[in-house]
Nucleic acid binder design. Sequence first.
DNA 1: GTCTATAGCTTGATAGAC
DNA 2: GTCTATCAAGCTATAGAC
Lengths: 223, 223
Amino acid sequence: MSLYEGGEMARAKRTTKEKLLDAAEKLFARKGYHGTSLRQITREAGVDLALVNYHFGGKEKLFEAVLDRRGAMLNEERLRRLEEVCRAAAPRPAATEAVVGAFFDPILDFLEHAGPGWHSYFSLLAWVNNSPQWGKRLMGKTFNATVKRFIEALMDSLPKAAPEDIYWGYNFLTGALTLSLAETGRLDVLSGGLCRSVDVAALRARLGPFVAAGLRGLAQRGG
Amino acid sequence: MSLYEGGEMARAKRTTKEKLLDAAEKLFARKGYHGTSLRQITREAGVDLALVNYHFGGKEKLFEAVLDRRGAMLNEERLRRLEEVCRAAAPRPAATEAVVGAFFDPILDFLEHAGPGWHSYFSLLAWVNNSPQWGKRLMGKTFNATVKRFIEALMDSLPKAAPEDIYWGYNFLTGALTLSLAETGRLDVLSGGLCRSVDVAALRARLGPFVAAGLRGLAQRGG
DNA sequence: GTCTATAGCTTGATAGAC
DNA sequence: GTCTATCAAGCTATAGAC
């Protein structure tokens, strides 16, 4: 199973657990946790209603399992690339652009080369990240350890910046990223069709430069 | 009624309609549309369940009324400030920093000087903006006309930038803004308490510089 | 592991008295 | 405008047959 096929095997070979995860991922991404019922999920998965409780132990556990599945893969790939750019730059710290790239590129690569499951997953992640109900606990559980490594690397790359500036900068960075991943179609409407929410190449060309320049601007704030 | 008290009068003087809007705003912001029931809303408002249908015609209409109420005030204030900075700079175009300030400052002023209703409203807005279900239609209905004016002003301020860069830049800008408004508390956890999600002064000092630098970086992309 | 059947509860909406 | 009472539908979860 290649990196980019993670969790998206041919229909015939998927286990019941995977069918449920795939269906839940798709529907939770569209309508949120409370807006999706187990009946809709099991219908989409072609599986009996009672099997959610057998395999996962309830709706909320299923929700967390959906977030965990690809979150672990994302963390692995991000850390691999962070280590790569740090090693390439040693003994100097990696440049801001390189650190930011190690954070964004795994997502963009999954979106460009993998199946629709990753699109749903990232859209769901955007929703969770902006949710007062889920954001703090669920994002933290999956991503805090990795994010702290990236924040350290950003601080190393911008030694003149105050730590507060880097924390706020990370907040802006992840906000810009997650809205882009939500694929709401709003960008399409505003631009009259000139830009498309799902155009990963266009996003890749602009997100890194915007964020790196923004972080540098923060680091030189006032001086 | 001063600008900053909009919709938040003394408890005794509020009409039933306003009580319902205030309660719905607070609860929708915390748990989303599907996560909030009309029974919770009417209990919080101290009002009978049946009155939602009498005054608004259903749950979804109530939801849209919540978004409309303060959205109109926000648009007015944003356009007033945009005109101000454009007039001050004429005949040259207003600077990127000034346009971005006219877009952010009304929100930051409402958060700093007005009651908790505005916090709930902006938190709800963050959620709606990142929702595939609601984002395109509801954000567009309330904000498209105003946003188009700001995008034009941004294009004028950065004549070397391609229109696509400005549209994507606006997307990043609003993502950074809305995650900050969601007040999920995640920033507090990541920074070990050094930064606080609800610290409007800290946000004000950093959001404008980050975004303006990001937009300039986009405009000079590759060259 | 899977499926049937159902318990126990909450939901949004409304008819009709006042 | 307000309130009581209620309806039909949908919800999560589970006990128990296979």
